[in-house]
């Protein structure tokens, strides 16, 4: 017994550990294999199937495709349908204006973060990260409370006598836009802060020592350096707002159709698979086009730090 114990202690690692070494030494691709398999099965193959459904006529019986032939009919149907154009245009307008407003409101916060003291910085981080940890529906609900007929805004305006009849904001484009901007503001601010706080603070000091005003420093030093952050923030906000259905559904009432709510209706209510596939593909492609445009613009306006900042 004792011999066996000693033997075990001086022998090199057992079989289990040898296998673990081989797998986890981190030199090979092995540790990533489970993730690759799962991503392939649950993302890559489904995307391929979606693509094939969008570009073919198919017949489904008992949950399996029995016949499938290549066809562009669904795509041309969608592209000639005015409803598609209106809906996608509405989504695009909404997403682009939300992105622009988020940038307009978010950039000053990032500037305040850069120039502010320790407690200012901490406060800004808490106020921007905390909303991301609560549900988007709950945050949209807040706007229902504020903008509703008997909501906070109307009560306040009526009581102060600024208006004598309740404003109708709910279920309009404005309600959707206000909600969208407020809900996605943190997503814009965080990348801006991340890129800005990576700068050498001596650049700002140098600019001020050379006699630049603070607004001049902001315009000629801070702004050009923060272009990558503007790009990342805009890309994130655009993707989210272009493809969301929470805010349009809740604040826009039942009749505010955007791309996401349209896809939802096609897939879940009317069970039109080919329409749903084509709409999803159009959504993905148009989204990608804007993202590429944002990337190109970002690259074009990035100065001095090209190749350093992500």
């Amino acid at each position: 017994m004792a011999e066996a114990a000693i033997h075990r202690r001086i022998t090199p690692p057992g079989f289990g550990e040898q296998v673990a070494d081989a797998l986890l030494s981190g030199r090979g691709i092995w540790p990533a294999v489970p993730a690759i398999v799962v991503l392939t099965v649950v993302a890559v193959i489904p995307f391929a199937i979606l693509l094939s459904l969008g570009f073919s006529d198919f017949e489904i019986s008992r949950g399996a495709i029995v016949s499938q032939t290549f066809s562009l009919a669904h795509l041309t149907n969608a592209l000639t349908d005015p409803l598609y154009w209106i809906t996608f245009q509405r989504s695009m307008n909404l997403a682009l204006s939300t992105t622009a407003l988020c940038l307009l409101l978010g950039y000053p916060v990032a500037y305040l973060f850069l120039t502010g003291g320790r407690w200012t910085k901490r406060l800004i981080l808490v106020l921007t990260i905390a909303p991301l940890l609560t549900s988007g529906i709950v945050r949209t609900y807040a706007w229902l409370v504020i903008l509703g007929g008997r909501g906070v805004l109307n009560s306040a305006l009526l009581q102060t006598g600024l208006i004598d009849q309740a404003l109708r904001i709910m279920n309009t484009h404005w309600a959707v836009l206000i909600g969208m901007v407020q809900i996605h503001l943190p997503v814009m601010i965080l990348p801006l802060i991340a890129v800005m706080s990576r700068h050498d603070s001596r650049l700002v000091e140098a600019s001020e020592n050379l006699g630049a005003s603070r607004i001049g420093t902001l315009r000629t030093v801070i702004l050009p350096l923060s272009v990558p952050g503007i790009g990342t923030g805009s890309a994130l906000v655009f993707t989210l707002t272009y493809t969301t259905f929470v805010v349009p559904q809740i604040l826009g009432g039942g009749n505010y159709l955007n791309a996401a709510t349209m896809i939802y209706e096609q897939v879940v209510f009317s069970l039109e698979w080919s329409k749903g596939s084509v709409s999803s593909l159009i959504l993905m492609v148009t989204c990608l086009i804007v993202l590429v445009a944002i990337a190109l613009l970002t690259n074009h306006f990035t100065k001095w730090t090209k190749g350093h900042d992500a």
Partner: peptide
């Protein structure tokens, strides 16, 4: 690894729903 994260969530949802059904 980043690809599924870059695709809009609803597109991934629709794709998985259809693929699963098949």
């Amino acid at each position: 690894v980043l690809v599924p994260h870059m695709v809009p969530g609803i597109v991934l949802g629709v794709a998985v729903l259809f693929a699963g059904a098949l």
